[in-house]
Design a protein around this nucleic acid. Structure first.
Lengths: 155, 155
DNA sequence: CTGCTTGCAAACCATTTGCATCACT
DNA sequence: AGTGATGCAAATGGTTTGCAAGCAG
């Protein structure tokens, strides 16, 4: 669990929040989902770990965890995505045709981001960009290189 | 109205849809909003033009107009955005601090998009990207160069 | 005329909120 | 013990749907 080395207990307490099993389970769930955790994903994971945790508790836990900075939330077209703060930074290319998600290192965009900053004096918040498009396989119908059309996550 | 030169009547009819005053008003609304029309914007505009048009009719009209290609819909974090198909293509930089929206020409990103395509064999759907970040003024608290903190749209 | 469209109202569904109870600290 | 957190249930708000009546073709 990549959040173990962080003293999340301290972080929560120091900001006036209590450390509860529910919050830790939500934190674990976000952690286990490694970077692309939609609320639905988190809820499923949390319910797997402890079915007795209420939906509203999950919403409130995410709110608190985000507030204290343990979790980062990225808004994107499909909704919000949560991940453990500080996890390896990267961006995603999601294929709108097959659903595949490609991961590209942060460096791949840094030049572009610098350009925009230079030309437009605008600093792009590059925490976790998600760009949509189509992957190679989907542009070459003949080459059916990937068979699972649903959820392929190469985090 | 930039859609007048398109024979939207033909386009609708040829795809088996009827041309109704409601649909034309929704089309006008999207057109008048020039590029960043959220559903809320459209609903407001439509109700201004004709208060008797029902909310669900607007949803259904947008669905049809998008389906026939008269309107383009871009999904982004804040929700969907509609615009008349073929309007000048550009991207946006929205400042998360002051709400200002900067417009950058499509060309500003074309190099970057080509890079990603070359390196990752992935074609970014670059219809209308909206990138978040902070503008110059918001990074220099001393220089209060813009006074309106709410909605500044430089389409 | 015929069938697609509309307006209305009800259904939906994710998220939020109020409140009594529970449990960290 | 006291204050914040939880679970439950109900409220909310945007979007969708079923249906009878209304128009476009």
């Amino acid at each position: 669990m990549s959040h173990e080395n962080k003293d999340y207990i301290q972080i929560l307490r120091s900001q006036g929040h209590k450390v509860t099993p529910q919050r830790l389970i939500v934190l674990d769930a976000v952690c286990a989902l490694e970077g692309h955790a939609t609320i639905a994903d988190i809820q499923a994971k949390v319910h797997f770990l402890d079915p007795s945790i209420n939906r509203s508790t999950i919403y409130r836990a995410l709110e608190v965890l985000t507030e204290v900075g343990l979790v980062t939330e990225a808004e994107m077209a499909e909704g919000k995505i949560y991940r453990i703060a500080g996890e390896a930074e990267h961006h995603h290319l999601t294929c709108t045709s097959c659903g595949r998600i490609l991961t590209i290192p942060k460096a791949a965009l840094s030049g572009f981001i610098a350009d925009i900053q230079r030309d437009y004096s605008f600093v792009i918040a590059a925490d976790h960009l998600v760009l949509k498009g189509t992957c190679e396989a989907c542009r070459q119908p003949g080459i059916d290189s990937h068979s699972t059309p649903e959820k392929i996550l190469d985090t």
